[in-house]
Design a protein around this nucleic acid. Structure first.
Length: 658
RNA sequence: GGGCGCGUAGCUCAGCUGGACUAGAGCAUCGGCCUUCUAAGCCGACGGUCGCAGGUUCGAAUCCUGCCGUGCCCGCCA
């Protein structure tokens, strides 16, 4: 709704500037560059323009006087009631409330700005153990970003890279080969693994979680085994076409399916799972290498500690001493480093490599949506992937340096445009609060940890597994639902519990800004009061309940605005609620602009807060004036739709009851 | 040593593209509100020299400089 008024206001201001202040820089700016703010209090109007402060500088006149001059001569566009000067020189515009209400339901037309396709890469969990709380933050952040982009009309492809050839997988493979009694016999190990995967009583990813920690410990105590097992396993996996490689494939695929199931619980789906093994085998790297060499992006180091390596120089990273920073891309033994592979992958995402993977189905969601994976050849009906205009990589902040190197690689290739359109969507880590670490037995006590947060570690097997956390959340919500809705059948109770648990988890992970390191705490994450997902869900459920009861009483809410209701908008609470609910589109735009999903979460919470307050002070079904009752029902139905839309953008459902 | 973050109420955090902020939220604590649309709610109280010191500005939590504290990164690991 705001977007229509805002557009009109921008156009009107531009006209005004051109007519009255043509010589100022502000008059030359495009309408979308105009700063429009929201006044701190609703009594101050709907839009605030700090424009006079800008003009004051170029015209050398006091802002307040300028604002008054502008306000006096301003021709208000349609939908506006008046303009006032406030504060040190703000121009405050007041909406025509009835006109605004009439356009409340007008949908914002999607206007893709980023291009034909955007790729968002997220989750990227090593397929060697169960997902943990940190992976959940990545997935929730990435998935919400995808939803916000799609809401604005962008075409988004979601990729989840599988590093199935790395050390982490090799270590678990070695654990099955040597620690689990297979005595190095890969065929025996495969049989063992397959029976473990087929055992419904076991969680295969949990089993590997423990095995990974076990072999890490074993390697620490037996360096000779590390020296023997790891390189041999890695080499076999990279070479392919042997029993050890098959064992690795069976393990990593089974774990990838576990991850997909875990993420499915919180409403996260993927379009493509590109595999490192294909990046290696399908010549992707050698094509990228040839290009990098051709363009002089990398060179063979002849001397020094990196002698015999292909390295990339980063000119922009040159220090004051003129020291150059070099990064090894190809090792002296001819193997590619992680960054090298990542550069190739990033090039492919932009369509900069003249080749294509094969694609096969990997996982089908209940909706029928298919997650594909890469393969040597395509199966019939496989779609195309890649060739994006923009790429967002949701990766934690520790990889900032490496992401910079990847972008530098694109730049060195002359792909300046693609370099600028490569976004490292970074976020800080999830650690465990001292109390949480103590609860899990990772430290003796919170005091012993010095009150400091404790890092999670896959190698040590410490951390909160994603499914364990979800199970705990569900157990809590199930108890709560059972107490409140004993009349409902068990399946329905379970459904509500799941929806509320997901709401709690997703909101919890979303409410922190990306740069904030989260100290995970069960008490906070399991809370359903205050600034939480269930709070927002509750508001939506209460709004829906009013509409349902009205319909039961044979007076369902009207779908469209009735001009006869105009007078009821004088009620400050009703108007304030309507206006805030209508801010959803503007909020999506702001969150995208700031690249900060947390801003959107905050908005959803504040809207719920405003509604809960309204709910408490304004009885709707008891309203005796039929006109006002109709108006209130319409308003509540509108707010309900907006709350549901806001929650959906965060991947949170509105339960039938709470 | 260099680079990038962070430091705001007892706790966890918003705000930080300078302006209506006499600094907000949630939790915790204390006190009210269920015969009225679901109390996972509402209302109120308590609580902060926005790390410190300078600077820029008509105006700084917000920008700049320095310092202090704290975290991450700087591998022929991924």
């Amino acid at each position: 709704m705001q977007w229509i008024l805002e557009q009109r206001l921008r156009a009107a201001v531009r006209e005004h500037l051109r007519a009255h202040y043509p010589a100022t820089p502000a008059a030359a700016l495009p309408p979308e560059a105009l700063r429009i703010e929201q006044p701190p209090q609703p009594e101050l109007g709907e839009f605030a323009l700090p424009l006079s402060f800008e003009l004051a500088k170029s015209l050398r006149r006091p802002p307040r006087a300028l604002a008054q001059e502008m306000a006096a001569a301003f021709e208000l566009p349609q939908g506006f009631a008046r303009v006032e000067v406030a504060g040190a020189g703000y121009l405050n515009f007041f909406a025509d409330r009835a006109a605004t209400a009439a356009i409340a339901a007008a949908p914002c037309p999607p206007e893709p700005r980023l291009g034909p396709k955007v790729i968002v890469e997220h989750t990227n969990i090593n397929p060697n153990k169960a997902a943990h709380i940190g992976h959940l933050r990545n997935a929730v952040l990435g998935d919400t970003w995808v939803r916000l982009l799609r809401h604005r009309g962008e075409t988004v492809e979601v990729q989840n890279l599988q590093d199935n050839t790395g050390v982490q997988v090799a270590d678990v493979v070695a654990a099955f080969l040597y620690l689990e009694g297979a005595a190095g016999d890969a065929a025996a190990a495969i049989a063992r693994v397959e029976s473990a995967i087929g055992d419904p009583a076991k969680r295969f990813d949990y089993l590997c979680w423990d095995l990974y920690a076990a072999i890490a410990q074993h390697y620490e105590q037996h360096p000779a085994d590390l020296a023997a097992w790891r390189p041999a396993t890695l080499q076999a996996i990279e070479a392919g076409g042997n029993p050890v490689a098959r064992l690795a494939a069976v393990i990593s695929e089974a774990i990838a399916r576990c991850h997909l199931k875990t993420m499915q619980r919180i409403g996260v789906e993927y379009d493509l799972l590109p595999r490192e093994s294909e990046i290696l085998h399908l010549d992707l790297w050698s094509r990228a290498f040839a290009l990098l060499r051709e363009r002089g992006a990398i060179r063979l180091e002849g001397e020094g500690k990196n002698a015999g390596c292909w390295v990339m120089e980063r000119a922009e990273a040159r220090g004051l001493e003129g020291e150059e920073e070099t990064k090894v891309i190809v090792r002296s033994n001819g193997t590619v480093t992680y960054v090298g592979k990542d550069i190739a992958y990033q090039m492919w995402k932009f369509g900069l490599l003249p080749l294509e993977f094969g694609y096969v189905r990997f996982y089908e969601y209940p909706s029928g949506h298919v997650a594909w994976t890469t393969a040597a050849g395509s199966e019939p009906g496989a779609p195309g992937f890649g060739r994006a205009a923009w790429v967002y990589n949701v990766i934690d902040v520790r990889q900032s340096y490496l992401q910079e190197v990847v972008v530098a690689g694109l730049r060195a290739l002359g792909a300046e445009r693609e370099a600028q359109r490569s976004v490292h969507f970074s976020y800080d880590m999830v650690a465990l609060s001292a109390a949480c670490a103590a609860e899990l037995g990772y430290v003796a006590s919170a005091e012993a940890a010095g009150g400091k947060r404790v890092d999670v570690s896959g190698r040590k097997g410490t951390g909160v597994k994603a499914d364990d956390l979800l199970d705990r959340l569900e157990a809590r919500t199930r108890a709560e639902v059972a107490a409140r809705h004993a009349e409902l059948p068990a399946v329905e109770q379970q459904r509500l519990a799941e929806q509320i648990a997901v709401g709690a988890l997703r909101y919890f992970l979303l409410k922190f800004a990306r740069t904030t390191a989260i100290a995970f705490d069960f008490k906070e994450a399991l809370s359903f009061e205050g600034e939480t997902g269930p709070y927002v869900q509750y508001a939506a459920v209460r709004a829906a309940a009013i509409g349902r009861k009205a319909a039961d009483a044979a007076s369902p809410p009207a779908a469209a605005w009735d001009a006869a209701w105009a007078g009821y908008l004088d009620d400050a609470a009703a108007w304030g609620l309507l206006w805030q609910a209508g801010r959803l589109e503007a909020q999506v735009g702001q969150s995208l602009e700031a690249a900060e999903p947390a801003q959107f979460a905050k908005f959803a919470f504040q809207l719920a807060q405003t509604f809960n307050n309204f709910y408490h002070h304004t009885p709707v079904l008891q309203e005796t004036d039929p006109g006002r009752r109709g108006f209130l029902l319409w308003l509540v139905a509108y707010v309900q739709r907006q709350l549901a839309a806001a929650l959906a953008l965060m991947g949170i459902a509105v339960p039938e009851a709470m």
